[in-house]
Amino acid sequence: MFTKEDRQVIRQSLLQQGRKLFLRYGLRKTNVGELARAAGIAKGTFYHFFDSKEELCLEIFHLEEGELSREIQGILDRHPDATEALRAVMEYSLRFVRGDSLLSRLRESGEYTLLSRGAGKARLARHLARDVEFAGQVLEALRRKGAACPLEPVVVAGILRAVVLLAFHEEEIGSRLYAPAMKHILEWIARGITGKAGRA
């Protein structure tokens, strides 16, 4: 039906147009027909590439995380001290998700749970496994800087995910308290993960 090149072009178009539509209208208000039309394909053709709009959204989310991962690697390379490096990684991650990211849009609109439910358990499990794998890579980079890093990658992945989620609760934490509280939280987490907790 499609050549390999056609499939690559269509897939890329769905990813680009999908990101634009999801950022503009959100997951709930964007339908498969609109996604297909924006990519220049028939609605039925969409399903040759993705099982659902949630699956497309999760793939776009994964691509954004790839950009974040590359920047994080650069941050780790630039900071010789493990604790400072990890704190800088978390600070950048918070800025990233509060900026022009799909995660930010989904969180603000309360649609993140729709993505979790609609993407399918297997795909979501693969996504979470990538988080754990990346946490392992971060830990290895920190250990090369001399940090003890006593925690397992799965625990660190959960901690880093929790830090990112805090970015979406500034109002509940209190706008005036958020920045100073986060500064201390990130410091404590960085020291705990690198094995420097309790040291001055």
Results as ranks from 00 to 15, higher is better:
residue 152 E to P: 00
residue 181 A to M: 15
residue 171 E to T: 11
residue 129 A to V: 00
residue 142 L to F: 06
residue 146 G to L: 07
residue 150 P to D: 02
residue 173 I to H: 04
residue 157 A to Q: 03
residue 117 R to F: 09
residue 151 L to G: 01
residue 94 L to S: 14
residue 125 A to Y: 00
residue 91 E to T: 09
residue 118 G to V: 11
residue 130 R to C: 01
residue 148 A to H: 08
residue 176 R to D: 11
residue 173 I to S: 03
residue 173 I to C: 07
residue 100 D to W: 02
residue 105 R to I: 02
residue 158 G to P: 09
residue 182 M to T: 10
residue 124 L to H: 00
residue 137 Q to N: 06
residue 137 Q to E: 14
residue 173 I to Q: 06
residue 121 K to S: 14
residue 143 R to I: 00
residue 166 L to G: 11
residue 140 E to R: 13
residue 146 G to H: 06
residue 129 A to S: 14
residue 116 S to D: 05
residue 116 S to C: 09
residue 95 R to E: 15
residue 93 S to R: 10
residue 154 V to Y: 07
residue 138 V to N: 04
residue 113 T to C: 01
residue 152 E to L: 11
residue 153 P to A: 00
residue 124 L to C: 03
residue 155 V to R: 05
residue 130 R to V: 02
residue 165 L to P: 00
residue 139 L to K: 11
residue 108 E to A: 13
residue 101 S to W: 15
residue 159 I to E: 01
residue 139 L to W: 11
residue 103 L to R: 12
residue 181 A to W: 03
residue 149 C to M: 04
residue 112 Y to L: 15
residue 176 R to Y: 08
residue 103 L to I: 11
residue 150 P to Y: 02
residue 104 S to L: 04
residue 157 A to R: 02
residue 107 R to Y: 12
residue 141 A to Q: 13
residue 148 A to M: 05
residue 116 S to L: 12
residue 180 P to D: 15
residue 129 A to K: 01
residue 144 R to Y: 03
residue 170 E to V: 02
residue 134 F to L: 09
residue 159 I to P: 11
residue 111 E to D: 10
residue 135 A to W: 02
residue 90 M to E: 12
residue 164 V to P: 05
residue 114 L to F: 05
residue 106 L to T: 07
residue 178 Y to E: 10
residue 96 F to P: 07
residue 111 E to F: 08
residue 95 R to Q: 14
residue 130 R to E: 14
residue 165 L to A: 07
residue 151 L to V: 00
residue 170 E to I: 00
residue 117 R to L: 14
residue 144 R to H: 10
residue 90 M to C: 14
residue 156 V to F: 10
residue 93 S to P: 03
residue 91 E to G: 02
residue 110 G to C: 10
residue 176 R to W: 08
residue 172 E to K: 10
residue 158 G to A: 03
residue 121 K to A: 15
residue 154 V to G: 05
residue 164 V to S: 06
residue 127 H to V: 03
residue 98 R to C: 14
residue 167 A to W: 06
residue 95 R to G: 12
residue 106 L to Q: 09
residue 103 L to G: 12
residue 103 L to T: 07
residue 104 S to Y: 13
residue 124 L to M: 11
residue 114 L to H: 04
residue 128 L to G: 01
residue 178 Y to L: 07
residue 98 R to I: 10
residue 130 R to T: 04
residue 111 E to T: 11
residue 148 A to F: 06
residue 172 E to W: 11
residue 138 V to K: 04
residue 114 L to G: 02
residue 165 L to K: 13
residue 161 R to T: 08
residue 128 L to N: 07
residue 162 A to G: 12
residue 150 P to A: 01
residue 118 G to A: 14
